[in-house]
Write a protein that binds this DNA or RNA. Structure first.
Lengths: 117, 117
DNA sequence: TAGTTATTTCAATAATAGATGAATTGTTGA
DNA sequence: TCAACAATTCATCTATTATTGAAATAACTA
């Protein structure tokens, strides 16, 4: 009995991604990067928009990068960061999945189960 | 310049909710409660499913409750917890909103902007 | 009321995350 | 090569979060 209702592996990974998002600065950063689209945005410019010191920004962007939510690429003097949309969408789908049981749909058009099958 | 791209207030609140979710046990708990539906589930039974000690479970459930993601109600000897679906959905909508800029829709049917307007 | 189950509280400790300032590395252009 | 800019690394300190075991509160049942 009590064969743990935990998706041990998947919950750990998802928790890590949520931890990465769960900070006001990082939330603002990902929003800004999302708005910037696939081209991304240089770290410095991002820092200006968010009013965050360069070293602090690096700290937070690394958390997002480790979680796979952003990618970076050096271009000359600048380092461009961009949002990884697939990862973001997968994450939201996972959360929405928690709203629906096997028998009940509660999240309407958001629902990945409805969409995929 | 640099009029901070941060939604100071809203990002703080969302970050708090994400922090509440960002733990393997709490993630498993909310999923289980979501599956249990509006009726909710007694703390003890939840603890068995998740294989978590009672005091630890209380600790984590309180975090979720403080964030408004679960509610509880004593019924005799038992305390029933249930997911607050509205809060969960609002949270996912907020995250999905980060996927879309003012000009680009990237999240398809998930998108709250598409849905609401 | 005594015993049992359910849940929470408390206290101590360990682990992690965040903020800050100084120093460092990489790149460009004079 | 030197000065300026972009970004990262490092070291330190503080604060928060998580884990644990023991004790306390609440409700039910015999």
């Amino acid at each position: 009995m009590a064969h743990s209702g935990r998706h041990q592996d998947s919950d750990d990974i998802v928790a890590r991604k949520l931890t990465a998002l769960a900070h006001p600065i990082r939330l603002a950063a990902i929003r800004q990067l999302a708005a910037a689209g696939p081209a991304g945005m240089a770290a410095g410019r991002l820092g200006e928009h968010l009013d965050v010191a360069p070293n602090a920004l690096t700290f937070h962007l690394q958390k997002l990068a480790t979680a796979g939510l952003v990618e970076s690429q050096r271009e000359g003097q600048f380092v461009y960061y961009r949002a990884v949309f697939d990862a973001l969408l997968a994450l939201t789908d996972h959360l929405v999945g928690a709203c629906c049981s096997e028998t009940e749909e509660r999240c309407g058009p958001r629902c990945p189960t409805l969409r995929d099958q």
